[in-house]
Design a protein around this nucleic acid. Structure first.
Lengths: 345, 345
DNA sequence: TTCCCGAGTGTTTGCGATAACACTCATCCC
DNA sequence: GGGATGAGTGTTATCGCAAACACTCGGGAA
């Protein structure tokens, strides 16, 4: 037993490795490896001895060594933008959950900007860490463009991407959700529906505009130019003040709940009652939506399902299975009190 | 050159390794390694040749191999609970940002429950992935208890933990924030302040109760039993209906903005005007708080700073530097319109 | 009896990088 | 001129694990 030198800090406190376990159990390292990876190939008594030794030494396999030899890390990369927002955060959470249940863990790369370069860099940060696969949550057109320039053999899956990406895509059917919201408002007797949209170049925003527009056009209603916000309550409020000036305004479909919230306040400040004078429908169904004033009618996105499906798809890709190209999750209209019948013209 | 066998899928598409770069540049692998890790030790011309080769082959170092030999992964683990909430999500985001700026990447482990076992398991999932350090965001008493049972030599830092944990702790000074909110309400002329607290055993909730109580006691005001919510708008609404029945109610301090939102609605439904009849102050300053009706006076928590500091502290611990034991970030009172002068008794 | 087979285990090798040390010169000093 | 010096580069060993292959049995078929 070597005594520590003066001042020596035992820096790596000598953690047990496979060889130590083998020795304690009186077998070879290979047998230990087998107990851990293919227990059925080891006689039960031997297995028990090995497991006891593992327990006693508190042995944990060194993943770096395993990765080096197997080429598999059991780590999934997620690149995303602004995970403080409800949508991305929920998606990330669902992915992590699904991953955990499948013995995967997840490594994240947040993006500062949404463009080709930063996407490539985020993916690069992850792949150089030897992740087995990547899920990219970046619902922006330029991110979509970035995806097109990634190596197509990368085991990747996109969430909420536009068309023409070389990977499977999972997304909520935004078009259908927006259409549902718009139809709901028309069914209440409104002559037309205004739209408070998300920022240009966000795929969700565009799809919602398209869904909204398609219903109005199909029904032959007037299509007013959408007002473009930035998803924030602030922008909803600001644009809401402009909307409140329109006196033929009776119904508004806001592209997310935060903007709807700002809108609600602007309408109230302008003396327009909701839903008596103006009806409002949002999108997302954030947990607080039911406690807006009035409670918000909105379109619920099932992020948990999106996350789960995305994980399932990367898993398939990692295993070389070619799965669906494009999976859509149905959104659901949640009727509360912010939308009512059209006031008599 | 071996021709692929029939049916053979070239499974690992032969990515370039250091030896390939070395060969192309006409040097040894060691020199390539040096160019990458200690460029000043290599003659400029050699370095240029190597870098050109790296470029040409698209070489990326294999991190697993590097980890195996250096014992350092450049990965930071973050264990947290419910990252869909604004606070944890913001903290996580700030940590990721700080990490990225220091060439670290982050791996996450979400917890399904907050107890000793799940904390240990979360930390275990991360350490077995050879993270260099861990930040634990689990502001619950039983999580704090879990921390006490972790190996104290683990390079870990806790965010928002209770006392007596064997790691440095970073947190917003909840006590001071709550005191500030309470004092603000008293300064407006209210005789006392009610409290809508967070759930029992959450360290933030407890600290806010303590801060609120300490001010009332110091000023000799009546201390009404706090109503205990669960952070959600739903619970704020429900408890708010009970509060609305108290006719000596003039001021409420809610432990977070979501509960304040529910409370606001309950008060309005009961015909109590805010701030004319009842003043409300929240906690967090979520981005929407300014668009509540009325705009919410609240206490802003600087999660970005918390995240940055936490990262700095783990970094120190990883490097063996012994830093602060407990770092507090000052919260800030943001005055908006939901709190006003006390109505004449 | 002999041979084969396969279950169970061991030995060797290699994954891709870096640490530690060895080597080669040109330079500089006395 | 001889040796010390140090900058620049190469060689070898090693990290911890698993794949591939080798070995040792005991039992059943021929």
């Amino acid at each position: 037993m070597t005594t520590p030198q003066r001042g020596d800090i035992p820096h790596r406190p000598k953690v047990a490795v496979m060889e130590d376990v083998a020795e304690l159990a009186g077998v070879s390292a290979m047998t230990v490896s087998r107990v851990l990876n293919a227990p059925e190939k080891v006689r039960p008594e031997t297995r028990a001895r090995v497991l006891a030794a593992v327990q006693e030494l508190g042995y944990r396999p060194n993943s770096a060594a395993r990765v080096l030899v197997t080429g598999r890390s059991g780590v999934l990369g997620v690149v995303s933008f602004d995970t403080t927002q409800y949508g991305p955060a929920s998606t990330l959470y669902a992915i992590e959950r699904a991953a955990r249940q499948n013995e995967y863990s997840v490594s994240i790369a947040s993006l500062d900007a949404l463009n080709r370069k930063s996407i490539a860099e985020g993916v690069g940060r992850l792949t150089s860490q030897s992740v087995d696969g990547v899920i990219i949550v970046a619902p922006h057109e330029s991110a979509t463009d970035g995806l097109r320039h990634l190596p197509p053999d990368l085991p990747a899956v996109a969430v909420d991407a536009g068309d023409g990406v070389p990977f499977p895509v999972v997304m909520v059917d935004q078009h259908a959700g927006a259409a549902r919201a718009t139809r709901h408002l028309l069914s209440l007797g409104h002559r037309t529906v205004w739209h408070l949209s998300g920022p240009a170049n966000w795929v969700d925003a565009n799809a919602r505009v398209a869904g909204w527009r398609s219903v109005l056009e199909a029904e032959g209603r007037e299509v007013r130019e959408p007002l473009v916000g930035d998803w924030s309550a602030r922008s909803g409020h600001e644009l809401g003040r402009r909307l409140a000036l329109e006196d033929d305004l009776t119904a508004v479909f806001a592209a997310n709940d935060q903007m709807a919230m700002g809108l609600l306040r602007a309408l109230r400040e302008a003396g327009r009652r909701v839903p008596e004078d103006v009806s409002v429908v949002g999108f997302d169904d954030i947990p607080e939506a039911a406690y807006f004033w009035p409670p918000l009618t909105t379109v619920r996105q099932d992020f948990a399902t999106v996350g789960r499906l995305a994980f399932q798809l990367v898993l398939d890709r990692i295993d070389g299975v070619l799965g669906e190209r494009r999976l859509k999750v149905e959104p659901e209209l949640v009727v509360r009190e912010s939308a009512g019948v059209s006031p008599p013209g």
